[in-house]
Design a protein around this nucleic acid. Structure first.
Lengths: 213, 213
DNA sequence: AACCCTATTGCGCGGTTGTCCAATAGCCCT
DNA sequence: AGGGCTATTGGACAACCGCGCAATAGGGTT
């Protein structure tokens, strides 16, 4: 294989590990699989990585962190809390097509047995909660949302979304992605005292006083 | 080891597999672990079981089915829908101490890659939904609950419970079990138009017109 | 062009896995 | 009491795992 700079090779290894993890699952990902994914020898992996556990933790942090950053960037582009919350749902749902959420599910299950992985998983989840709680706090302060317990509401909305998505990923045809999307938005509307449909749409070009056609 | 009847031995093997699965996780459970658990040789396992996948699927079905039956029995002892729903929360939460819910988490993650396991997981989950939806339907018919979309509400309440419990199992100290219990009941109260605190308590000896001390 | 540093290779090691099988031993029936 | 059915044993087998190491090869520097 072509000789790469250590920095490039490191990134390539992590990227290949993510790809294999998404296909085979975290626990079933092996050094030889990763090596085959990027067409090199297995020995090369250990030249850059201390242990397999480290590699799996790094790869999970990379994939999960990317998911979060994408949603965070989208949310920050929203003009007001309602639009930001709508963007939150719009970017969360479609990304977790099938494969992305499966990785989260694996991560949660493995977290109890791999300390390094649990640490990143917990940290990411707290960030998701903080992002959502920030939107709600702004909305309450601006008088467009109503909620006694912001932190609790954020955890409930997030957990509802996770729980519903879990059904789709783990059980396939029982629930559809469209239902998950609609029901999680409906749950948030109820939680925050919003009118039904207040969080509908993709959030793009949305304004609070826009007339519905 | 003492010679057993095939029926007894089969049950002993499944029970031992459940015990090992709860301790080590589904994916990490080996034939030798199960054999050691019940003090026999590893060869004996394959005399009763076609493959390891089959055994894991059977054991998961047993453990998960027991969980469901326990809650179902408790719910059926309730006098009215409010009491039955309270019993639902009371028996769901404490059972999933740590170890029981970890098994569900493992099962969900493995479901995507083990067809036999996915089938039982999906079937069980539909039963959980049906149990909850039945309670809500009765409550709406009797005029003690208010809900437009019974099936959707049942999925939301169930998924909220799963999602919150997941946080505790996977991430430890981020959320407490008491918060999960309180928040999931609060979510259900909001979802069904009940007064805050309407679903509090353990449901034992509860009556609708009981005066609070 | 010669050289040195290091990215990369290919294989071997010890250990663990699921699966299988001949040999053994315990229980029931006659 | 003896014989047959089968539950049970314990190890062999091939495949796979993470990991380490001597040998090789490629590219920037002098």
């Amino acid at each position: 294989m072509a000789r790469m700079s250590p920095q490039q090779r490191r990134e390539a290894i992590v990227a290949a590990t993510v790809a294999v993890m998404e296909r085979r699952g975290i626990a079933a990902t092996t050094v030889r699989d990763v090596a085959a994914e990027l067409g090199t020898s297995s020995g090369l992996i250990h030249h850059y990585v201390d242990s397999m556990d480290d590699l799996l933790a790094k790869a999970f942090a990379q994939a999960a962190g990317d998911d979060f950053e994408r949603t965070r960037a989208a949310v920050e582009s929203g003009a007001d809390p309602i639009e930001r919350l709508t963007l939150f749902f719009a970017t969360y749902a479609p990304a977790e097509d099938d494969i992305g959420m499966q990785l989260w599910l694996d991560g949660w299950a493995e977290a109890a047995r791999r300390p390094a992985l649990q640490k990143t998983s917990r940290h990411l989840n707290v960030q998701w909660h903080a992002l959502l709680a920030g939107i709600i706090r702004d909305g309450v302060a601006m008088g467009v949302m109503w909620c006694d317990d912001v932190d609790g509401a954020a955890w409930r909305i997030l957990s509802l979304l996770d729980g519903l998505t879990l059904q789709v990923v783990a059980h396939g045809a029982v629930l559809s992605m469209a239902q998950v999307d609609a029901w999680s938005r409906a749950g948030a509307e109820r939680e925050l005292g919003l009118a039904p449909g207040a969080l509908a749409g993709d959030g793009v070009g949305m304004t609070r006083d826009r007339a519905y056609p």
